[in-house]
């Protein structure tokens, strides 16, 4: 068999889907919150929190399904925290997100050490197949695409991110809308975190490993649309799956850094700025 035949298999497609799922979920969440005008770079930390909470709840209740819901609730709470900081306390969005990442990183180590006595690692706990989450992710993403561009609610969301003053005039509660979608972002990141846990049935502090940030990149490359974000996530997942297969041919270190390099190149060459919400990252003060 030729090397190409070795590499291009149905397994590559499945691996791509698995690797893309959490990124696509995070990209979708970020699309929602940025469309509403709130940048959240805390998605990385939120996903770590989601994975940690899944491990905790699954470990103590023995039910991975309850754990899944708990992860989404925890993610939503992190989203709410970010929203309060950005909207109520007028923190810089990026800075607040960084704060979440740093805080969660510390908490994850402290909690694992305290609960399991293992620094950054949980005990093994009941898990579910990640294919449930992957399937759900695809359904949610397609539904979100319709929601965002074909419903009045989607229109309201976009107006809030584009022209908050106009939205306000039209009777849309800008702040409430922003709270809702930032929390939704957190919920989706929590779900992505649950995916990470369920991929091995335990939590380790390194398991999200920058995929949250790649979710943000996917959203940018996907041009602020749910389907676009999915496409970019699939592209990243594909390259990551491919690099594992390429390790037979090139030094592992190059292979491992390939997805990141491609992301930078994709950002540089395929970027379109047209859809950046006009009021992104700006605090809205009601007149």
């Amino acid at each position: 068999m030729s090397p190409l035949g070795d590499i291009l298999t149905i397994q590559l497609v499945l691996a791509t889907l698995r690797l893309a799922t959490p990124i696509a979920l995070i990209a979708l969440g970020e699309t929602f919150s940025e469309r509403a005008g709130i940048i959240n770079v805390g998605v990385e930390g939120t996903a770590v929190l989601g994975a940690l909470v899944t491990a905790l709840v699954s470990y103590f209740t023995g039910s991975p399904w309850i754990a899944l819901i708990a992860a989404m609730v925890a993610g939503g709470l992190a989203g709410a925290l970010h929203a309060v900081w950005c909207i109520r306390f007028q923190a810089n969005h990026v800075v607040s997100g960084i704060g979440i990442n740093i805080l969660v990183a510390g908490l994850a180590l402290f909690i694992t050490s305290s609960v399991w006595g293992w620094r950054g690692t949980s005990a093994s706990a009941p898990m579910i197949s990640t294919w449930y989450i992957t399937t759900a992710a695809f359904l949610i993403i397609f539904a979100s695409q319709v929601f965002m561009f074909r419903t009045k609610w989607g229109l309201r969301l976009r107006v809030v991110g584009e022209k908050p003053e106009a939205a306000d005039t039209a009777g849309i509660d800008v702040h409430r809308t922003r709270y809702i979608y930032t929390i939704l972002n957190g919920v989706l990141c929590g779900l992505a975190g649950a995916f990470f846990f369920n991929s091995v049935g335990r939590f380790t502090s390194g398991m999200v490993g920058g995929r949250g940030f790649i979710g943000i990149a996917a959203m940018v490359i996907g041009n602020y649309s749910p389907i676009g974000g999915l496409g970019a996530a699939l592209l990243f997942g594909f390259i990551d799956a491919l690099q594992m297969r390429l390790q037979s041919y090139i030094p592992s270190q190059f292979s491992i850094m390939l997805p990141y390099l491609i992301t930078v190149i994709a950002l540089a060459f395929f970027i379109r700025k047209a859809n950046v919400p006009a009021a992104l990252g700006k605090h809205y003060v009601k007149q």
Binding site: F89, Q90, S96, G99, L103, G106, L107, F110
Partner: peptide, 26 residues
């Protein structure tokens, strides 16, 4: 006395309070 990572938690909290300019005022 405790896991050393409590230091990382403290650091995270410091940042969290420092970045919300109006929080302390509130």
């Amino acid at each position: 006395a405790a896991p050393g990572d409590i230091a990382a938690v403290i650091q995270g909290l410091v940042i969290f309070f420092i970045i919300a300019p109006t929080l302390i005022r509130v």
